[in-house]
């Protein structure tokens, strides 16, 4: 607890969940699940930073998770940015991939929101 800490902290900013960080919703990566017909599900990943090559991510992920997937373009997702869509419930795996520092993107876990049941 140094005094520098206090300087960077804006006490009037809206506190975020438990972390106390102030972040915009847009910065979150949302991992969602959707039911398709029968037992089949879809996993969508929205908001992966554009500094990453989505196509490459998809390629790696498809191979690693042994599932098919596609990229939904910004226009197709109605302005919600490029969305990676995978077949099956890949939520845990994709989260692991996004946060893994060695084999994945090494993103902060706090920026990822997993939705669904």
């Amino acid at each position: 607890m140094s005094i520098e800490n206090l300087k960077t902290y804006d006490p009037f900013a809206e506190a975020d969940d438990d972390s106390g960080q102030t972040k915009q919703t847009q910065e979150y990566i949302h991992i969602r699940i959707q039911q398709r017909n029968g037992r089949k599900t879809l996993t969508t990943v929205q908001g992966i930073p554009s500094k990453f090559d989505h196509k490459k991510i998809l390629k790696v992920v498809k191979k690693e998770f042994a599932c098919n997937g596609t990229i939904i373009s910004d226009t197709e997702s109605k302005g919600m940015g490029e969305v990676i869509q995978l077949q099956g419930d890949q939520r845990l795996k994709i989260k692991e991939f996004l946060t893994n520092k060695d084999a994945g993107l090494g993103l902060d876990e706090k920026t990822i929101k997993v939705h669904g049941f």
């Binding site: 809206e14 969602r32 959707q34 039911q35 879809l42 969508t44 939904i72 969305v83 939705h115």
Partner: peptide
Amino acid sequence: RRSVQAIKTGFSAQVG
């Protein structure tokens, strides 16, 4: 008193 985010559906794939 705290503010909460409005519920957002986010991206939802067309299925079917």
